[in-house]
């Protein structure tokens, strides 16, 4: 059981800046994120795109913003629990007990939900009755590539993940690549390589096809793919890999007894607390009249929510407003020596 003043759910830009705001008022926190990397939408959806509306930063990419935020909170040596999704939240008198899908447990006096539009999860095939194969013969990521050795693997998708795995697995497996249109959207070098492997007979490619159905009981016997012109082709395969990018799912957050408005959590604008005392929501996931889904709004929300957490973490102390430029205590918390 990890004890901390506050638990932040979500390591997007808003969660990251909130670490800073908690740190300067003397509160500790731990951060959990379902993704394998820090940065939320900025890193997952647009690492190379420039952002032009961060105050005092005329231009920076999603990745630069994330790195700068990390630099700004480095001094607090915050623990990040990546690849973990917060599943359960329980109240125990004045404490909150939190559990992740990997079994990590936290005890805190408050929780800040900075979960964006929910956790990123792989997009799946839309084909009916696919679940019984998922996780075994139909996969959306590769954990152990050895299982594919000397097998037939059919890969669906047109981006870099699909192309990279097609190239990689073609060394040890029979690879069939299927995509819904003729153009691939991966890096040109990968597209060229895949075409070269096709010429050499090491990869089969079917374009303008999508998965139609799967045959077989628990094991896959074969799959049927359907062309744009509705014709069907049968493929014998052992494994199917689908790479369709990530989608955001609200997931377990919907089960914590919080008020929800569509996919967002209503908060008050005084301290961004939800209908549950001690649970705050900031960034894209919160809603209130006039809410803008912008990073700069999330920074403000985090600053106020951090102050809101203070009374739960230190019920016997009074929060005092201080500037970072002039407060000795704040500067010492930031590790600044004078």
């Amino acid at each position: 059981m990890i004890k901390t003043d506050t638990l932040i759910i979500g390591a997007g830009p808003v969660g990251l800046f909130c670490v800073h705001q908690l740190g300067i008022i003397g509160l500790t926190c731990e951060v959990v994120d379902n993704l394998d990397k820090i940065g939320g939408q900025c890193i997952e959806l647009y690492p190379d795109k420039p952002i032009y509306d961060i105050p005092a930063i005329p231009e920076c990419t999603g990745e630069e913003l994330t790195n700068n935020l990390l630099e700004q909170i480095k001094t607090f040596k915050t623990n990040f629990h990546l690849n973990e999704r917060v599943e359960e939240i329980k109240q125990d008198e004045k404490k909150w007990l939190i559990k992740t899908n990997k079994g990590t447990q936290f005890e805190t006096s408050s929780i800040i939900i900075a979960a964006g539009v929910g956790s990123f999860e792989p997009r799946k095939f839309s084909t009916k009755e696919i679940e019984k194969y998922e996780g075994k013969k139909i996969l959306y990521s590769v954990k152990d590539k050895k299982i594919f050795k000397d097998k037939t693997v059919t890969i669906f998708g047109g981006g870099d993940s699909a192309l990279d795995w097609a190239i990689e697995l073609s060394n040890t497996s029979k690879v069939i690549l299927v995509h819904r249109r003729d153009d691939f959207r991966g890096m040109q070098a990968s597209i060229d390589k895949v075409n070269q492997l096709k010429e050499e007979g090491k990869i089969e490619i079917y374009t303008k096809y999508q998965l139609d159905s799967v045959e077989g009981d628990n094991k896959i016997e074969s799959i049927n793919i359907k062309h744009d012109d509705e014709s069907i082709k049968e493929i014998k395969t052992d494994y199917v890999l689908g790479f369709f990018g990530l989608i955001m799912k609200l997931g377990p957050i919907a089960e914590w007894g919080l008020n929800l408005d569509k996919k967002t959590i209503p908060v008050n604008t005084e301290n961004f607390e939800t209908n549950k005392k001690g649970i705050f929501a900031i960034g894209d996931i919160c809603s209130y009249p006039g809410k803008l889904k912008l990073i700069l709004s999330g920074f403000h929300e985090g600053a106020l929510a951090a102050r809101g957490c203070f009374k739960y973490a230190k019920p016997d102390e009074k929060y005092r407003f201080e500037f970072t430029t002039s407060s000795k205590i704040v500067k010492s918390r930031l590790g600044i020596k004078e």
Binding site: R123, G158, G159, R180, D183, Q210, D228, F244
Partner: peptide, 13 residues
């Protein structure tokens, strides 16, 4: 847009 449609649920022409 077409790149993004690759990821949509059941894209069609």
């Amino acid at each position: 847009e077409e790149d993004m449609l690759d990821m949509a649920f059941e894209p069609k022409k």
